[in-house]
């Protein structure tokens, strides 16, 4: 199912301290974390975001700590997906485990302009910038990531494993 959202562009090497500074790590509440999303990049950044918007990032987005609060803060801010040149590996796993969609597109990311509206169609494997007409092909996900998405994230995946073992509630 395709969806559209407004683009908020950020630069390269956006680290997890920028996404959610440590002083906000005293909660696990997604909505509260969302209120401080990108507070380490620019105070009040999150005010520009509307439900369903999309972050478009440069190289190595999410580098730094393993805090799962980072994808949670992005989800909590109402962001639907992050399109990036590349992602830091812990952040990449965390995002899928939390149900945040990441799309790795390399240099093609430069075709997207800040403030434009993007249309993302995971099934068709395309991202379209509706304002400048640019189209980007999305490479297919690895089978393991696809399994996680099909199961609805890591929690459900483990739940199913436990049921198979007869250990779940």
């Amino acid at each position: 199912m395709s969806f559209t959202g407004k683009v908020h562009k950020v630069g390269a090497h956006i680290d997890t301290d920028a996404i959610i500074p440590a002083r906000f790590l005293v909660t696990t509440d997604t909505r509260k974390l969302g209120e401080a999303c990108m507070e380490g990049l620019e105070p009040g950044w999150v005010k520009r975001v509307h439900e369903g918007d999309i972050i478009v990032a440069g190289r190595n987005f999410g580098c730094g700590s393993s805090r799962e609060h980072a994808p949670l803060a992005i989800i909590g801010a109402g962001i639907r997906a992050v399109v990036g040149h590349s992602f830091a590996r812990i952040f990449y796993r965390n995002a899928f485990n939390m149900g945040l969609m990441l799309l790795e597109v390399g240099d093609e990311v430069d075709k997207i302009n800040d403030g434009d509206t993007l249309e993302i169609s995971p099934e068709n494997g395309t991202i379209r910038d509706l304002d400048n007409g640019a189209e980007i092909r999305i490479p297919p996900l690895s089978p393991m990531m696809q399994t996680l998405i099909d199961k609805g994230g890591m929690v459900n995946y483990v739940k199913e494993q436990l049921k198979l073992r007869g250990e779940a509630e």
């Binding site: 700590s65 393993s66 805090r67 812990i90 796993r93 965390n94 890591m154 483990v158």
Partner: peptide
């Protein structure tokens, strides 16, 4: 290093 949910999976399985 991994996120907390991967860690939870490790703790369980």
């Amino acid at each position: 290093g991994l996120g907390s949910t991967d860690i939870a999976c490790g703790m369980v399985l």
